[in-house]
Design a binder for these strands. Structure first.
Length: 598
DNA sequence: CTTAGGG
DNA sequence: CCCTAAG
């Protein structure tokens, strides 16, 4: 399968782009839930790369990783770094032993349940999921008969012992003392591990970044991308290793699941075998750790909005104006080859029960964040198959309800704007040689993916990043249609803060929609206004005589727009003449009827 | 830097 | 959506 899901640095990227090194710097975010489309990971034909992972709440808004999540990811990386000696020695980062190595034999990873069912993986990370404490893959402390060879040789046993007698609360406090932050994780094992690691750790992976060049990940000197401490380096291939599954009572279920996975899917490629093999070894020699600084990283989008508010300037990352072709810049600086080929992170799919190998990548941001990378996802990705019970602002709920459904039905498949629940992971599978990639279209899911990707490919053949539209036209690739929820937000914002105060609205109502600038809001408002006015003349041939918006704006919203516009411009006229009259009428009506009730 | 408009 | 001229 020569398809490639390409999301690089929040940018869409084509296979060609990547191979041509044009858009090659990946940004790895965090994930918890994975929408993974492509199971094929054949070491000999593919290079799989985690490119981007983001976490979304129910409204599709970016949410920062929890510290625990971040730490989990950091640990993965850090561990990788440390055990690899130098980052330049790309090695298998992590690989599930269980489901990765089980019945190895097939060279194809396949999701069971593929049928349109979302390939959603839940990385049970973070405090909200105590059942599965963060940082799965990094486990080395586990007990375990099945992995007797794994010895925490690098970990001071004493510490471990001393921690044993502590209560969860104690551990949490220790954790706090160690890391300078609170944790809600209640898993003692995890806490202990973290604490130990925190106490012994001393290396910081965050100083290394990589870039993909020519299908390989090249180490890149630390750069502007990581200037700021909060460089959104959220790598988070959190993976749940099989070993983890064996840990602790709370994971018994997982264990079971893991087995199911092993049997259910065929990830067993020689590749994975290898990886798996190296894993145990690697985990054994996990070196000492670093002193962990309190993690403070935000997804760029968020920090952007917030920092604007506070006048903070840490947004430099995003703001770099010259970042239109930053990737080129980055790529132009080849350093050392860093074969990431083998580095796999594995995760466990709590839904389909399939684990996948997720190669770790790097984090380098290039250009403006691409907000709608999810639009690259196949529409059948199973976006909302699982709702995260995460707390979601009620105000957002409205958005979702008012917007999602409409979107679902009205948006073209390519533009799935419906907010994703949970987290997302985008994987990039870089074919080393497309011709080598073979795919068996077994499942509908695969087919649709192929189809989707094909269309995408087609649309992006050109240098002129354009994308076909429904009406046959071509529009710029990075155009992002306004979702209904966005429109609603905008309208609300205008209602609240007044039209014209775009920056206010932007940061107050669009804090999480980083991709909309105040200018965008303004423009959109202008368009909305036009649309609303265009709809007024009933005698008019057809409101649709005008160019129809990609996302039809419900009439109520348009009228609301009109109202707001009126309020702003001709408050008195419209009020006294039309609205006031109507208001009085209804009032009268009420008065007429109410006496009867009395 | 934010807003308003034109392109 | 971009660009730019104006506060």
């Amino acid at each position: 399968m020569e398809t490639v899901v390409d999301i690089v640095g929040n940018e869409e990227a084509r296979v060609q782009d990547i191979t041509l090194q044009k858009t090659a710097d990946p940004v790895v975010y965090q994930l918890v839930r994975v929408h993974f489309y492509e199971p094929v990971v054949n070491k000999f034909s593919l290079m799989a790369r985690v490119l981007l992972m983001k976490k979304f709440d129910d409204n599709g808004e970016l949410v920062p990783a929890t510290d625990d999540e971040v730490m989990a990811v950091e640990d993965l990386l850090e561990d990788d770094n440390s055990k690899g000696g130098t980052p330049d020695t790309g090695r298998t980062l992590e690989c599930s032993t269980s489901y990765g190595c089980g019945p190895c034999g097939s060279d194809k990873v396949q999701f069971n349940g593929s049928e349109g069912q979302s390939q959603v993986e839940e990385l049970e990370v973070g405090p909200e999921k105590p059942r599965m404490p963060p940082n799965p893959a990094m486990d080395f402390v586990e007990t375990d008969s099945q992995h007797e060879e794994r010895i925490p040789s690098l970990i001071p046993n004493a510490s471990d012992d001393s921690l044993d007698i502590l209560s969860v609360k104690d551990l949490q406090e220790t954790f706090k003392a160690t890391f300078g932050r609170e944790t809600s994780v209640k898993d003692k094992q995890w806490l202990k591990r973290r604490i130990i690691m925190g106490l012994t750790n001393s290396c910081d992976f965050s100083t290394t970044t990589f870039v993909i060049i020519d299908n390989r990940v090249v180490k890149k000197g630390r750069e502007e991308t990581c200037k700021t401490a909060d460089c959104p380096v959220l790598v988070d291939c959190v993976v749940r290793s099989a070993m983890e599954s064996h840990e602790g009572p709370s994971t018994s279920h997982d264990k079971h699941e893991t087995h199911a996975i092993a049997n259910g899917m065929q990830i067993r490629s020689s590749t994975f075998q290898e990886n798996c093999g190296s894993k145990d070894a690697d985990t054994e020699q996990r070196p000492a750790k670093r002193v962990r600084k309190p993690t403070k990283r935000y997804i760029e989008e968020l920090s952007e909005g917030e920092s604007r508010d506070s006048g903070d300037k840490i947004v430099s990352l995003v703001k770099h104006p010259a970042n239109d072709q930053p990737s080129a810049k980055v790529c132009a600086r080849p350093v050392q080859d860093f074969e990431l080929d083998g580095r796999c992170l594995t995760r466990k799919d709590s839904l389909g029960g399939s684990g996948i190998q997720v190669p770790y990548v790097s984090r380098i941001r290039r250009s403006r964040p691409r907000e709608n990378f999810m639009t690259l996802m196949p529409s059948d990705m199973g976006i909302s198959s699982v709702l995260e019970k995460d707390g979601v602002e009620s105000s957002e709920q409205l958005d979702k309800e008012s917007g999602n459904e409409v979107l679902k039905n009205s948006l073209s498949p390519r533009w799935i704007q419906e907010p994703f629940d949970g987290y997302l992971l985008c994987l990039l599978l870089l074919p080393k040689d497309a011709s080598l990639i073979q795919k068996k279209n077994n499942s509908a899911g695969e087919r649709s993916e192929a189809k989707y990707l094909e269309s995408y490919k087609t649309s992006s053949d050109d240098e002129v990043a354009t994308v076909p539209t429904a009406n046959g036209g071509m529009r710029r690739k990075h155009h992002r249609p306004w979702s209904l929820s966005e429109v609603v937000k905008l309208v609300e914002g205008v209602a609240k803060y007044g039209a014209g105060r775009w920056s206010e609205i932007k940061r107050l109502a669009f804090a999480s929609y980083s991709y909309r600038t105040s200018v965008d809001l303004k423009d959109k408002w202008r368009n909305l206004l036009r649309a609303s006015l265009a709809e007024l003349p009933t005698g008019n041939g057809m409101p649709s005589s005008r160019k129809q918006a990609s996302v039809p704006i419900p009439a109520p919203i348009l009228s609301r727009v009109r109202e707001l516009a009126d309020v702003q411009t001709q408050v008195l006229p419209s009020f006294s003449s039309g609205r006031l009259a109507g208001f009085n009428d209804s009032n009268n009506t009420v008065h007429e009827t109410s006496p009867g009730f009395l």
